[in-house]
Each structure stands twice: as C-alpha cells, then as structure tokens.
Amino acid sequence: MSDTQFDTYEVFHQKKKGDPHIHVGAVHAPDPQTALQYARDQFARRLACVSLWVVNSRDITATDYQDERFFSMVLDKSYRDPKDFDAPLKETNV
C-alpha cells in the first residue's frame, strides 16, 4: 500500500525586520498552519528569525529555464543602466 504524500510548502525566512524573505527549503505538511510549525522547527531552530512564509509549492508560477527568450535583451538597453552615464555622482548601491 502506498503511503501518504503530503503537500509540500516552500519556506521563506526573514532574518530580521527590514531584510527580504529568502527561500530556504520546503517542508511536507498536511496544512499551511502545520507547515509553519514544521518550518520553524526545521529552518529557525538555529538561525535568527522574525518571520516565516509558507507557500504551497503548487501555487508557485515560475518561468521556464529552457525559454531563455523570456529574459533576452538583444537590442541595446544601455540607456537605462547607470553605469553607462558619465556623471560625477556616486551610484546608489543595489
């Protein structure tokens, strides 16, 4: 008899307020609330953490690595790159 395979939830971890949530892994869980608890035990038992998000893996819509055209910029777009301008100003760090 095949066993139960729960849904998987992708886990996003925020180290401190002001930081972005970063994808750190996924947990198997029967529901979102339980997924949050499991995420806490697995991903926040050592690292500092102020917030966790869990998202059912099915609910993520992603681009396709094989469709490189999605991100291709063939023609010159240097006009919107700060590096392309010669001005005596410091670039804002990104």
Binding site: D3, T4, F6, D7, P30, D31, T34
Partner: peptide, 19 residues
C-alpha cells in the same frame, strides 16, 4: 517506526481533506 507512524500520517492527510 514507519509502520507505527502510518496511522498518524493517514489521519493528518484525512483531516486536511476534511478541512
């Protein structure tokens, strides 16, 4: 351990469906 835990996994999955 896997067999002993089967009823727990099944119950959690059933509850999820019910919810």
């Amino acid at each position: 351990a896997h067999e002993d835990g089967r009823w727990v996994r099944e119950a959690l999955a059933a509850k999820r469906k019910e919810v």
